[in-house]
């Protein structure tokens, strides 16, 4: 075994980019809540950007290494230490057999991502290693980690090339108020003009109910024309449901595949980096943009990932 879980933390799960192809059968996608942080952690280690990582939530675990490997930690700052010393984030870190990573407590954000060079030895279920907690599928035995669990590396790389080069600036920075760009629809026509105006101009606060399924918001009521019920249709990652009570809920990785509430808008993919880091008390506001603008931003992000990939691999013979 490569890693022993001494303390599991609040909710530490194995996640990759999610389980695609089965939504038509009612299987939620799951996957990393903050996919950008997950991809950056993998790119730092020459992993496939969608390699499975540990998603660590709020109170992190204590992990004892029995085997040497490179790791990379990204996302929110959950106070990680390596053998008691602060552990650098956003860079490749060699963890020797016998060393322990321990998270002392949350500094900012909500979720950290810990990637392992060569990935984890976790069998894919329906094409993905993501844990979907509610149906107990994927990841480590379909559940969050518990004390005593043992994880194995798949192809550890204790001699990763150019380790000193593998570092990035801190990519996630907390904000007083998160501006989430959204694309209006699919049911924006179920809201009054006043409702749309409220949604696009007011500030909302993340309630105590935020998890991998969704994020309930508190704030001014978004007014419907005729209530918030519809005949069920599909739900995208980042879809913002507004039930009849008028309080928005941002649907996240573990959302059900279909639902019967009006959806006023959808958060743009590039802003999942913030959506995945929201926790109770955080403030958000919504800014509508066009689908073309959102896809341009997504293209720029992909170019950035490619640049990083090329940089770490340069000069390789």
């Amino acid at each position: 075994m490569s890693i022993r879980v001494i303390q599991p933390g609040v909710q530490t799960t194995v996640q990759d980019l999610g389980r695609f192809g089965y939504q038509q059968f009612g299987v939620p996608v799951a996957g990393a809540m903050d996919p950008r942080s997950m991809k950056l952690a993998n790119l730092l280690l020459d992993n496939d950007p969608g390699e499975a990582v540990l998603e660590i939530t709020i109170m992190g675990p204590q992990l004892a290494f029995d085997e040497t490997n490179y790791v990379a930690l990204t996302g929110g700052d959950l106070g990680a230490t390596l053998d008691g010393k602060p552990m650098p984030r956003y860079q490749a870190v060699k963890v020797e057999a016998g060393q322990t990573i321990r998270f002392l407590g949350i500094r900012n954000g909500c979720r950290a991502y810990l990637a392992f060079a060569g990935g984890l030895d976790i069998p894919p279920v329906m094409g993905s290693r993501s844990t979907y907690l509610k149906a107990k599928i994927g990841g480590f035995k379909g559940r969050k980690l518990e004390a005593g669990d043992e994880l194995s590396f798949r192809e550890p790389k204790p001699d990763l090339d150019f380790p000193e080069r593998r570092r990035l600036g801190i990519d996630f920075t907390p904000q007083k108020q998160y501006e989430l760009h959204v694309i209006l629809g699919p049911q924006d026509d179920h809201f009054t003009e006043e409702g749309i105006k409220t949604f696009c101009s007011e500030v909302y606060t993340v309630s105590a109910e935020f998890d991998r399924m969704g994020c309930r918001l508190e704030g001014p009521i978004v007014e419907h024309k005729n209530g918030g019920d519809i005949i069920s249709d599909g739900i995208a990652f980042g879809a913002i449901q507004v039930p009849s009570a008028g309080k928005p809920i941002i649907m996240a990785a573990d959302r059900q595949t279909t639902g019967g509430y009006t959806k006023i808008a959808t958060v743009c993919s590039v802003d999942f980096r913030f959506l995945g880091q929201l926790k109770g008390g955080d403030k958000v506001n919504f800014v509508p943009i066009t689908v073309e603008q959102a896809q341009n931003a997504l293209r720029l992000e992909q170019q950035y990932f490619q640049m990083i990939t090329d940089f770490f691999k340069r000069d390789r013979t």
Partner: peptide
């Protein structure tokens, strides 16, 4: 054709 974000759309 309904917009459901930047990676999907809904044909109603």
């Amino acid at each position: 054709f309904l917009l459901t974000g930047d990676t999907s759309l809904s044909v109603e």
